[in-house]
Design a protein around this nucleic acid. Structure first.
Length: 131
RNA sequence: AUACCGGGACACUCUAUCGCUCCGAUGCAAAUCGGAGAGGAAAGUCCGGACAACAGAGAGCAUCCUGUCCUGAUUUAGUUCAGGAUAUUCGCAGGCAAACUGCGAAGCAAGAGAGUGCCACAGAAACCAAACCGCCUGGCGAAUACCGCACAGGCAAGGGUGAAAUCGAGGGGUAAGAGCCCACGCUUUGUAUAAGUAAUUGUACAUUGAUGGUAAACCUCAGGAGUUGCAAUGCCAAAUAAUGGAAGGCUGCUCGUCUCUCUUCAAUGAGAAAGCCAUUGGUAGGCAGCAUAGAUAAAUGAUAGAGGCUAUCAGGAAACUGGUAGAACAGAAUCCGGCUUAUAGGCCCGGUAUGUUA
RNA sequence: CGGGAUGUAGCGCAGUCCGGUAGCGCACUCCCUUGGGGUGGGAGAGGUCGCAAGUUCAAAUCUUGUCAUCCCGA
């Protein structure tokens, strides 16, 4: 498995899990993000084990144009893809898997390098909370 | 030449690394290899069509939409679009003036000779007749031109009001006046004739002086549209004792989901619009629909380099060289056609203004 | 993707159906009342009715286009 890939089976795809995250998920605030996460029963023996399922959300109220929303989602996905390996190592050691939802809460459109910096910070925070 | 406005086609290019979606091949799998991968508007959802459901076929009411003529275009459908022509409207000039003439621009939502409604304020009067200030004749008052009148009649030229007051202006005519009459111009309707595929236009004769405006008021005429929409619809899984996709009771009904007729099915049947009462639990995933882009929290990206373009700074006489910054509007979700709106930059076409030269 | 509604004074709303004067409440300004303020009384200002084009003598109102905001439907 390549370390920097971000395939479809690593996405959050079910509408139900989104609702559960909003109801029961624990939240961390790292501006410009807000991160909701929760533990999921692990299945380390099965071949389709994935430590993290990730969803990305950009609210329509802050950015009414679809182009801007797509651009931000792509930037966040790119930043996550490059920096996810630390989280994966920690979770693999402890046999855990989590569902995570990243919500973009800022009202301005940020450039890529800022988003990447904040992504590193927030992933470190997430690791600390899980441990 | 410069600036601005409008329209049109184009919508930075290439390479490397790391990644994404779908399809195909190999493979137990992980994965590897190959191929395809966003616009002119994908947008707004303003129209139309395909496609699907409502059992099938036909007719009609209500409701809604469209409205000159010809030619052409398309998924061959439209009342859509494009081009041309014409009625008409607007502006400028001419003219004493006009419902006039010439030039230029715009260019269609039919009909105001079926009926109903409305036309504020002002004005005497707003559509069917009428007379405020007036003009004229007669009568009366001492009163045969001049002043007056709760008098009798004639007139609609002039004033004034208004968006609009029954053709314009000239001459004749008259007590005063009036298309009352005449010439000129315009105009209504009809006939004939010429041009044109046609709408329509010209000419001649007769006739009229409009039948005030408003149909983006009701309406009339001609024509068109059955309704709902891919969240349509069909199937599977899951759920449950089991059924259904919400179930139940009452009222009131229907036999299409507006009405009528016929056909088919059905009376121990089928349907589900309206009102009231009361209960609110489970599943809300997948496949088809669906595409030589194509998903279902929804792919088409990030970084680096090179070249071209624009702006600006520095150097230079110039060609140019170097640095910095920038590159619009905007992202497919069933598909197709039209319309509308957004759009950096240079290019092409047209118009307006200013300047220079000839 | 498909339906629907609303834009009028600083704020909340009438008026739009059926075209001629743009109004109500709170807020604002000035004056009176009070020793001063509040309350109360009186007077006044503030709008080209989201924007554009059209119909009409005349448009907030009718027609068309457009821009915002909001609400529904699995």
């Amino acid at each position: 498995m390549h370390l920097n890939s971000f395939k479809k089976y690593e996405h959050l795809t079910s509408k139900k899990t989104f609702e559960q995250l909003f109801l029961k998920g624990k939240s961390i605030a790292v501006p410009p993000f807000r991160i909701l996460w929760m533990h999921v029963p692990s299945a380390i023996q099965s071949t389709k084990y994935t430590p993290v399922h990730l969803g990305i959300a950009v609210p329509k109220k802050s950015f009414s144009k679809a182009v801007v929303r797509n651009k931000l989602k792509r930037r966040i996905r790119e930043a996550y893809r490059k920096n996810k390996h630390e989280v994966y190592e920690v979770l693999k050691k402890r046999n855990l898997s989590v569902d995570v939802l990243i919500i973009y809460t800022a009202k301005q459109e940020l450039p890529y390098d800022q988003i990447e910096q904040k992504m590193i910070v927030s992933l470190h925070k997430l690791i600390a909370v899980i441990q």
